[in-house]
Every structure is written in structure tokens, then in C-alpha cells.
């Protein structure tokens, strides 16, 4: 396993995330049944480690992220972040959302400081800090722009800066590039790799693009459908930086094939396989 970032914790003892046997169920009122969104999720994440969670739509990977964020509560199991049990959102975590979730009435600058305001952390140094992170995500010159004046990729940069400026030790990214066009997406992946190499927090990154996961992550959790459970936890040994060239490496391709096989072998899709149909994974390529 390639460790690119050093543990932030002295001695590296405290795990960034410790999820033990986490299950989430929803009671569905209309169907009068219980939906198991997640079942028996167990994952440990070191400080500064990058975990990608890959799986088909609706497999519960976003639910897992919400549990870690403290936005959803598990019906069984425990989650610890930085050694403390999750009871709700904390300042040591920040989330980047798929739909950006920027306040349309705030400029880039004001959106970036949104989290700091809510956490009561605005002081004399705030302006400088906000400026620093705007620069880090490459939005210099767009400080006074409103989200409607920015492209999708730029909006997500604002979303990323808004999360980073709170200096979280764990960054949670919920399909952050899913709504961004393919070309911009590659740029964003490179940028993210560059940025986290600099800021060094642990990351949970939800995606349904296999390539994206391999490009970015130290560890990949492959999740299969209904109930969402971890099929396999993989370690990515490909040297960084992983640009477009590294996609041609045999390791990369082997890993990609392996993940696709796991996803295609989903028991939920077993019927189609048995009938001799070609298994067309319901995933999109990065």
C-alpha cells in the first residue's frame, strides 16, 4: 500500500474512522416494510488515508457517508471518528455534496465562509483564510461571483473550499464530481489529488466511477446492492501522482477488471447471469 500522506496523529494511533458493523434500516410507511440500506459495514480508516466507496446507485454508499457525517443515525453498530463516537455533525468533519448545495444569495467568498460562520469561528484571520482556500481550489478572481455565474466545476470548487476552510480532519465527499462533465471531471480529480496532498486529511469519497476511485484512493470499498454491504476492501498500490498515463498501467487495468467483476457478480444481479445474459454493469465510467 502506498502511503502518500503522513498520519496527523502523534504515533498514528487514533483511527480517523472506525466503523463497526454499521447497519441502517428505514421503515417505509407506504410499503409497510423495512428497507435495509446498509448492512454490517466495517471499515477502519487511518489518518490521512483516502477511502473511495464504489458501488451501484442505491447501494447505500451515500447513507454510509451520512452516518459518518452525523446526519443519519445507524440502527445498529457504532461509528467513531477521531476516536469519538458520532452523535451528530462536528467541526472535525466537513461534507462536499453532489449537488454543491451552495447558497445562491452568497458570493464565492461568502459561501466559503458559511461553515465558519455556523461554527462561530469567524475572527480577524477569517478573510485571509478564506482567500487562501479560494486560491487553493483555483478560484482566484471569482471571489465576488455568485454561484449562478459559475460553471458546475467551479461551483464544486466552491463547495470544496467551503469544506476545507473549516480545516476538518476528515473530509466527506458524496459523489462530488457526478454532475460535472467528463472533461472537467478529470481536471477536478487531478486538482483534488493535488489539494489533499497539501492539506492531508482523511477522506471518504463516494463515487460510482471505478476509474475515479482507482485514480484517487488509497483504499477502495466495493459495495454491492440491497442490502448494501462491503464486498471487498481493496488497497491501491499504484504510485502517485496517478495521471492519465497510469490508467494504462497493467496494475490499474487489473484492479479495474477486478472491481468490475465484483460488481457484476452482485447476487442481486445473479438471475440475469444464470439466464446467460451478458452482465452490463449499471455503472458509468469516469
Amino acid at each position: 500500500m502506498v502511503k502518500v500522506r503522513e498520519s496527523a496523529e502523534p504515533g498514528g494511533r487514533v483511527l480517523a474512522v472506525e466503523a463497526h458493523d454499521v447497519s441502517v434500516t428505514y421503515d417505509r410507511l407506504r410499503e409497510k416494510d423495512t428497507l435495509i440500506a446498509l448492512s454490517g459495514f466495517t471499515i477502519d480508516l487511518q489518518q490521512g488515508e483516502f477511502l473511495a466507496v464504489v458501488g451501484p446507485s442505491g447501494c447505500g454508499k451515500s447513507t454510509f457517508l451520512n452516518v459518518v457525517a452525523g446526519l443519519t443515525f445507524p440502527s445498529a453498530g457504532t461509528v467513531k471518528v477521531m476516536g469519538k463516537e458520532v452523535t451528530g455533525p462536528e467541526t472535525d468533519r466537513a461534507v462536499v455534496f453532489q449537488d454543491y448545495a451552495l447558497m445562491p444569495w452568497r458570493t464565492t467568498e461568502q459561501n466559503v465562509r458559511f461553515g465558519l460562520e455556523l461554527q462561530g469561528r469567524v475572527d480577524a484571520s477569517t478573510k485571509e483564510r478564506v482567500g487562501h482556500y479560494i486560491k487553493l481550489v483555483g478560484l482566484e478572481g471569482f471571489e465576488k461571483a455568485y454561484p449562478r455565474e459559475l460553471s458546475g466545476g467551479m461551483r464544486q470548487r466552491v463547495g470544496l473550499a467551503r469544506a476545507l476552510v473549516t480545516e476538518p480532519r476528515l473530509l466527506l465527499m458524496d459523489e462530488p464530481f457526478a454532475a460535472i462533465d467528463a472533461m472537467t471531471r478529470e481536471v477536478m480529480q487531478d486538482e483534488l489529488a493535488r489539494i489533499v496532498a497539501e492539506t492531508g486529511q482523511a477522506i471518504i469519497f463516494i463515487t460510482h466511477s471505478v476509474d475515479e476511485a482507482i485514480t484517487l484512493a488509497d483504499k477502495i470499498a466495493v459495495v454491492t446492492n440491497r442490502p448494501g454491504r462491503i464486498r471487498e476492501l481493496l488497497t491501491v498500490d499504484i504510485p502517485r501522482p496517478r495521471g492519465r498515463e497510469s490508467r494504462k498501467l497493467p496494475e490499474f487495468q487489473a484492479l479495474r477488471d477486478h472491481i468490475w467483476d465484483l460488481l457484476a457478480d452482485d447476487p442481486a444481479r445473479g438471475v440475469a447471469r444464470a439466464a446467460g445474459a451478458t452482465v452490463e454493469p449499471a455503472l458509468q465510467e469516469g
Partner: peptide, 14 residues
């Protein structure tokens, strides 16, 4: 009110 904005605010502990 856009629910995703509320979720974003909650994620920062609002």
C-alpha cells in the same frame, strides 16, 4: 427552501 441547503448547513453543525 431547498432541502439540500438545509442539509449542508446541518453538516456544519448548524
Amino acid at each position: 427552501v431547498d432541502n439540500s441547503l438545509l442539509v449542508a448547513a446541518r453538516s456544519f453543525g448548524a
